[in-house]
């Protein structure tokens, strides 16, 4: 792994983002920025584009899918991998949809740290690879 992965967590649950930041940074492989609203998350992503965004789906100001659309419309961020992370869809439903929601990878809360890291690594690595010609 070349340098630390920059992860942006956008979730209205501040304790979760705080704990996730601590847990991921504790592994030594990640540098985590946290935002606790859609607007704050969009601003943070535009200010410092991350390597991957962990995005909650249900938030008070905007839904995660709307945030994903806005990020996809941003030229600098449209290739940034987004992993939805939400308590709204049960785990089996996520698995039966092959872990995809609106065409993006998906993790159901509560998720173990190992599963989270495996998912981040899978999608960050994919994004790091040069596009096939």
């Amino acid at each position: 792994m070349a340098g630390k992965r920059r992860i942006l967590v956008i979730d209205d649950e501040a304790r979760f983002t705080r704990l996730l930041k601590v847990a991921l940074e504790n592994t030594g492989g990640y540098e985590v920025a946290q935002a606790n609203s859609a607007a704050e998350g969009l601003a943070a992503a535009r200010t410092a584009p991350p390597d991957l965004i962990l995005l909650d789906v249900i938030m008070p100001d905007q839904s995660g899918t709307e945030v994903a659309s806005q990020l996809g419309a941003d030229e600098r961020l449209k290739k940034t991998p987004i992993v939805f992370l939400t308590a709204a869809v049960p785990k089996d439903a996520a698995e039966s949809r092959r872990g995809m929601l609106n065409g993006r990878p998906f993790l159901a809360k509560p998720v173990s740290l190992d599963d989270l890291i495996a998912c981040i690594e899978q999608h960050v690595t994919t994004a790091d690879e040069p596009p096939a010609v």
């Binding site: 649950e13 979760f16 704990l19 996730l20 249900i58 308590a87 809360k109 509560p110 998720v111 740290l113």
Partner: peptide, 22 residues
Amino acid sequence: VAHEVKNPLAIVLMGVNFLSSH
């Protein structure tokens, strides 16, 4: 209530995982 319960569960699980690794 699932959404409201699953969020605290996610925090607890993440905390337990963190503490285990720590």
